[in-house]
Design a protein around this nucleic acid. Structure first.
Lengths: 247, 247
DNA sequence: TCCTGTGAAAATCTTCACAGCT
DNA sequence: AGCTGTGAAGATTTTCACAGGA
């Protein structure tokens, strides 16, 4: 879903430093591997096989090995991967070793929940500022942060070195907010508003649209219904997006 | 592989009726097209070219045409697509013409917000029941619905014909909830808990993990930083082929 | 033995470019 | 003319299957 490509490989001769240019599909899976690794690590595992990690992450083992091979060789044949080492490597590649400040714009229904979402803090992100355009909300305290007026965004973004902006406004306001974020120097945006944003090529946008997820599920419901209404429907060969986990 | 239109498939594999089997990638984009069409329709457009619709949906026009061609021929050469007709067709394929009941399990921070999220109702879904395991929350009224105990899930699911279950519990509880949903006959699950669910093959699971989205953005931040840190780096990545970014 | 890492094949997805309809 | 629908080419992603190290 990325809006733009990330071809890089500058033409220069390659004293390219440590930046493996990973396939997008791989990048999107690394966080899941990381979560699985943390979970396994807490369970006391020191090493884990590709099969085991793959199961914990919900993918198949060949894909997992291929993905990890892009990072380098951090496994041991006959044994598996060292959990702690792999965590470290993935965290490095994802840039999680440095703290990244996040701001959230729009403290309505959804924004309110995001502001207090534990999952952010527990996985290396800290929301450092909240903004809204609604005067009635300015000054409100949410999970320890005070809501500020959107006009302060530019200044605060610089002060706090904000790296990622989260947009949780209604669709109508989202483009203007994105423009503000870009103007403030933010180069990564997570957009919860149901609309397309236009941004300069150096800015990355990811979109999460809750209704779209439901609509995709609705399609599959519709499909399943139309199959069972028929004689001898094939059952679900690649229907889901999850491996058939057989633990 | 090129699948023909709903003509009769030779060979009598069964006169499979109107269910085009769309590529997953296409399915995932249809809701976006639908949103764009509604938006254009409200703006007064009766017809729209592939170029125009593609821009509104944030994809390129060739992809859009290919996607729509899988549904059949609903465009007019030289003119474009009839907005109303196309909306109708996409809604039909996505199964949005029938009301689908949704239940939400877990009314914590995030669940609370989801229960009141306008985007669901406004795009054809209705949350008809809320569940939680925490006695303290049972009976609470949220956006017009009373929170019930998870033990009632099975019964309520049948009564209300629940088609889709949304899991917004902590990770530790998610698998048990998924099992309950499956036992209650729910065959589509939207999972917000950061964990992998195992479900039978006929159940579709989609996962939304907010922290993972941030981690993916973090990767790109890291990558961008490592590029600009290099000599000659500059914004050489000009290969950007994003749609013309209209101001 | 067990398991990773990886070429090569297969499947899927995207883009091009133009035939053909309005 | 303008625009859709679509084969064919290209790019990416997944899967297979096995070489080779522990």
């Amino acid at each position: 879903m990325s809006q733009q490509r990330h071809g890089s490989t500058p033409g220069g001769t390659g004293d390219v430093p440590a930046f493996p240019d990973l396939p997008e599909a791989t990048i999107a899976r690394l966080p899941e591997y990381l979560r699985a690794l943390h979970s396994l690590g807490e369970g006391g595992a020191d090493t884990i096989s590709s099969e085991g990690l793959a199961a914990a992450a919900g993918v198949n083992s060949a894909k997992l090995r291929k993905d990890l091979s892009h990072l380098g060789s951090y496994g041991t044949r006959g044994v598996g991967y060292d959990v702690a080492l792999l965590i470290e490597q993935i965290e490095y590649v994802l840039g999680l070793d440095q703290r990244r400040a996040v701001c959230l714009v729009g403290v309505g229904n959804l924004g309110h929940a995001l502001a207090g979402y534990d999952g952010f803090a527990s996985r290396g992100f800290k929301i450092v500022a909240l903004f809204d355009a609604d005067e009635a909300k300015i000054g409100e305290r949410i999970h320890g942060l005070v809501v500020r007026h959107i006009d302060e965004l530019r200044q605060v973004a610089v002060e706090e070195c904000i790296a990622i902006g989260v947009i949780a406004t209604p669709a109508g306001a989202a483009q203007a907010v994105a423009d503000e974020l870009v103007a403030a120097g933010v180069t990564s945006i997570l957009n919860f508003a149901p609309c397309v944003l236009s941004v300069p090529a150096n800015v990355d946008v990811r979109k999460v649209d809750l209704a779209i997820e439901l609509q995709i599920l609705s399609f599959h419901e519709h499909r399943k219904a139309s199959l069972t209404a028929l004689p001898g429907g094939r059952s679900a060969a690649g229907a889901g997006n999850q491996e058939a986990v057989g633990s």
